[in-house]
């Protein structure tokens, strides 16, 4: 009997279903070829956005160019989410970059309040102020809101200080995070064992947690916008990036980021022999979801405006739900990764 009990205990203790060698290889690939490049991409797009804002506010480029830069940064930010393992507690980015859901339209209200004070706005003052006036959400309000026209010089004069403070703030944030990754954290995450990670499985678990969390957030963002699950009322103004019409573009970037963690020498390589049915299901899930996203030719508001569009969005949500659950249930189980536990289901 005692042997049986201890055997049960060892099953519980074995967090090493992943063979050590393949785990190390996949970990090295995910850190060096996926997560680190995603951080580089975010840093570079943030730098370009900062430069584009400077040029626009100096009258050296047009609104379309700086809007393009915003989209690129938004795309890079969303693509980064699935690989966003924070190096330390202090580096939890979340709301510092994107304020969602903005249920009370605080990006607009607080931006206008701040501008109404006629006080100097800097990256430093933003860092200690409300999250609603920081990052991509506030920048999107400035660049895309219909109630002001930045091609007008007076309007530009009013909004540029906040735009420039925001792009400076975000550039500094992205640069800092990249430096931490390049100087230390990429090594900590990939060269195991070390003081933080006992083995490759522990570090891979961190990456999978980030991936599953990102997919969950994508699902919530789309679901809130289109009233799913449960056929609720669509809430377009709570959609991510509704002002820019980049809701589905953001989702597309997030899915691509998640797929980068799966494909090739990613998580797929760890389960390809152990669970071929899961591999097939995951491959199909990514492919069908991305094909559906590509086939949606209109932006979200237009799709919500007709029955066929609504139906297509619901189908998209179901596909996203399947992909999330495959990661959360099947992949985590096959890799023997404990996802949320006390933090989500504690006492």
């Amino acid at each position: 009997m005692r042997k049986l009990l201890l055997a049960a205990g060892f099953l519980l203790a074995s967090n090493t279903l992943v063979a050590a060698d393949s785990g190390q290889q996949v970990l090295a690939h995910l850190v060096q070829q996926v997560a680190l490049p995603a951080h580089v991409q975010w840093q570079q797009s943030s730098q370009q956005f900062y430069q584009a804002a400077e040029a626009f506010c100096a009258g050296n480029s047009d609104l379309a160019a700086v809007r393009d830069s915003w989209r690129n940064t938004q795309r890079a930010w969303n693509a980064l989410q699935p690989a966003l393992v924070p190096p330390s507690a202090a580096d939890q980015l979340g709301l510092q970059v994107q304020f969602w859901p903005d249920k009370r339209n605080l990006a607009q209200k607080q931006s206008e309040e701040l501008l109404g004070k006629n006080e100097a706005v800097t990256a430093e003052s933003l860092a200690t102020g409300s999250v609603a006036v920081r990052g991509l959400s506030a920048s999107e309000y400035i660049l895309f809101d219909q109630r002001h026209d930045l091609s007008d010089a007076r309007q530009r004069q009013r909004y540029c200080p906040l735009l420039q403070a925001n792009t400076t703030y975000q550039f500094a944030l992205a640069l800092h995070l990249l430096q931490v990754w390049q100087q230390e954290f990429a090594r900590t995450l990939s060269q195991v064992p070390n003081q933080h990670f006992a083995d490759a499985s522990s570090a891979l678990a961190e990456l999978l947690r980030a991936d599953v969390t990102a997919l969950d957030v994508m699902k919530k963002k789309l679901g809130t916008a289109i009233g799913q699950p449960g056929d609720g009322a669509p809430q377009l103004y709570q959609a991510e990036a509704w002002r820019s019409g980049f809701t589905l573009g953001s989702l597309q970037a997030g899915i691509a980021g998640s797929r980068a963690l799966w494909d090739g020498n990613g998580f797929r390589a760890l389960v390809v022999e152990k669970n071929p049915a899961l591999v097939q299901a995951m491959d199909n899930s990514f492919a069908s979801l991305q094909a559906s996203l590509k086939s949606l030719q209109q932006p979200l508001p237009a799709l919500l405006g007709n029955a066929a569009g609504q139906q297509a969005l619901k189908a998209l949500y179901v596909q996203l739900d399947v992909l999330h659950r495959l990661h959360e249930k099947e992949l985590a189980k096959t890799l023997d990764v404990q996802l949320g536990f006390n933090g989500t289901d504690g006492d």
Binding site: L6, A8, V337, F341
Partner: peptide
């Protein structure tokens, strides 16, 4: 403790990592 399959255990471990018991 609980495992990824949602099974629950009462466990005792020495600090060197050896299990005293792990009772489902």
């Amino acid at each position: 403790r609980s495992d990824v399959d949602g099974r629950h255990f009462c466990v005792g471990y020495r600090l060197d990592g050896s299990a005293l018991f792990s009772t489902p």
